[in-house]
Design a binder for these strands. Structure first.
Length: 477
RNA sequence: CGAGGUGUGGCUCAGUUUGGUAGAGCGCCACGUUAGGGACGUGGAGACCGCAGGUUCAAAUCCUGUCACCUCGACCA
């Protein structure tokens, strides 16, 4: 990486300033434009196309498990938000309030939804009466607003696009099953489509969602060694049902509370794609999510026949997302542009190639140049896209694994945090005091208690008392 | 919300110390020549210097206030 020749001067190198690198990539790849409202970004066509691909594939995954889409209101009356105590306390500091309609002051303030649990609960309390009405498996694609103090494109914005699934079940077991099922849907999607390996696990009490009985998470490691919570799935038990009075009559004619779940991923996941796969020349998109999978770049396109050949090649790729860059820029410009935007494959076609009935294919991630006969180009591109998808996941996994450390006492823990950014695996007594102390001393938070447990030691990394669990720790976005 | 920093054509910045009425590079537009890693020439458009007051004959420059953005903390998905 360090000795790699830097071709795009417009992007600050990661090693120099990771935060600036991120901002440069986001801007130069034309994913977003800053708007005049703090924390609200304009998602440009290329950035939105990535989100649309995420939506398309995740939505199909949800529906395959029986989920249906709905749409809930943007506003929540204050009284409704107040119904579940923990929930309000968790979200009240960061909600935006509507106080006036036109010039009239409202009788009751409305909050712009920071999340829609309360709306779904209110809705469910009206439509669920019998065990025959269960389960309810609803999801909505929408945006929510959280008045954040510090914001960054995709990672933390005031308004964010996401999906929130909300389900209601007859039994606790069924709710727990659904919670884990959706977490797996997310993790599989991230690995298979986004080429981002995830640590699946349970959040500590402290990190748990406001109002939830348990929160599960998928955690990814970014290139700079910081962790990113990339999706969550919550089991609410019957807490919300009791607060909102969501009851049904069971087979024995007894009144029961429903058990609920909610789960979401947001545009934040785009931040993960950038920070896991990107390099000093810009974005690198996994082929399965890339809005453009291959860009055909004609060389000397004014020369007769070159552009025609480029379009002719494009025609061969009807089932792929392929474009021709026929703009009036120089080839070098187009190369840089293709790299900044993370387009997985570049197909160069010029007079010399046409003579030999070939094209030059260049992989975005490895920059490998491959000369291929035009007769075999579709198969070759297909093969490269598949390899690239697999290689990117492997590379990300290797990076994560080589940046995951074990700490057995606080001295080790502090040393690792100082010297080697990444995940730290450490045993924990599950006492919140230790969690707080670790945060105070190192800045690291508990990321999750992974499903895949390991016994590293008998004692808690912090207090030395008997440990109950192995947890992942790290500095997080 | 605390500490520090920055606001000047679309972008990056010079000019501010010592007030005299705004400059460069890139980008943009037109024409021509080019074309295998951000091409070149010629011509052109584009800024009431973040905003609001104040001092002064005169303010990008000095004073007061305010807003926005960035970095680092605290808080949070």
């Amino acid at each position: 990486m360090a000795q790699e020749k830097k071709l795009v001067e417009a992007i600050t190198s990661m090693e120099e300033d990771f935060a600036q690198w991120y901002t440069d990539v986001v801007k130069k790849a034309e994913l977003i434009e800053y708007s005049s409202i703090k924390g609200c970004m304009i998602i440009r066509p290329y950035g939105y196309a990535i989100w649309e691909n995420i939506q398309k594939q995740l939505d199909a995954d949800f529906k395959a498990t029986g989920v249906e889409n709905v749409y809930m209101p943007l506003f929540i009356p204050e009284s409704l938000l107040q119904k579940e105590k923990d929930h309000v306390e968790g979200f009240a500091p960061e909600v935006a309030w509507v106080t006036h309609g036109g010039n009239e002051k409202l009788q009751e303030r409305l909050c712009v939804r920071p999340t829609s649990e309360t709306l779904f609960c209110d809705f469910y309390s009206n439509i669920i009466h019998s065990y025959r009405d269960l389960p309810k498996l609803y999801n909505q694609w929408c945006s929510v607003v959280r008045w954040e103090k510090t914001t960054r494109p995709f990672l933390r914005s005031t308004e964010l696009l996401w999906q929130e699934g909300h389900t209601a079940h007859a039994t606790a077991e069924e709710a727990e099953e659904r919670t884990i099922q959706m977490l797996n849907v997310y993790a599989d999607f991230c690995e298979n489509v986004l080429a981002i390996p995830m640590i699946k696990g349970k959040k500590s009490e402290k990190e748990r969602f406001a109002g939830a009985e348990s929160t599960y998470t998928i955690e990814a490691l970014m290139h700079d060694g910081k962790a990113l919570q990339s999706g969550t799935s919550h089991n609410f038990g019957d807490g919300f049902a009791r607060a909102f009075d969501i009851q049904y009559t069971d087979k024995n004619n007894k009144l029961q509370y429903v058990h609920q779940t909610s789960w979401g991923v947001s545009t934040r996941i785009i931040g993960a794609i950038i920070m896991v796969h990107g390099d000093n020349n810009g974005l690198v998109l996994p082929p399965r999510i890339a809005p453009i999978q291959a860009m055909i770049i004609p060389i000397n396109q004014k020369k007769e026949g070159v552009l025609d050949k480029a379009y002719e090649i494009k025609e061969k790729f009807s089932s792929y997302r392929v474009k021709v860059d026929d703009s009036d820029k120089s080839p070098g410009w187009k190369f840089s542009e293709q790299e900044m935007r993370g387009i997985p494959i570049r197909i160069e076609i010029g007079p010399k190639d046409i003579e030999k009935n070939q094209a030059v294919i260049v992989r975005r991630d490895t920059r490998e140049k491959i000369f291929v006969s035009l007769d075999e180009i579709v198969n070759k591109v297909d093969e490269i896209l598949k390899n690239m998808q697999a290689d990117m996941l492997k590379k990300a996994r290797d990076h994560r694994d080589s940046h995951t450390y074990v700490a057995k006492d606080m001295k080790e823990f502090e040393h690792i945090i100082e010297e080697k950014p990444g995940f730290i695996k450490a045993m924990w007594c599950m006492d919140e005091a230790c969690e707080m102390e670790i945060k105070d001393r190192t800045g690291a938070t508990s990321r999750c208690m992974p499903f895949e447990q390991e016994h590293l030691d008998d004692n808690c990394v912090c207090c030395g008392k008997p440990a109950k669990v192995m947890a992942y720790w790290g500095k997080a976005y």
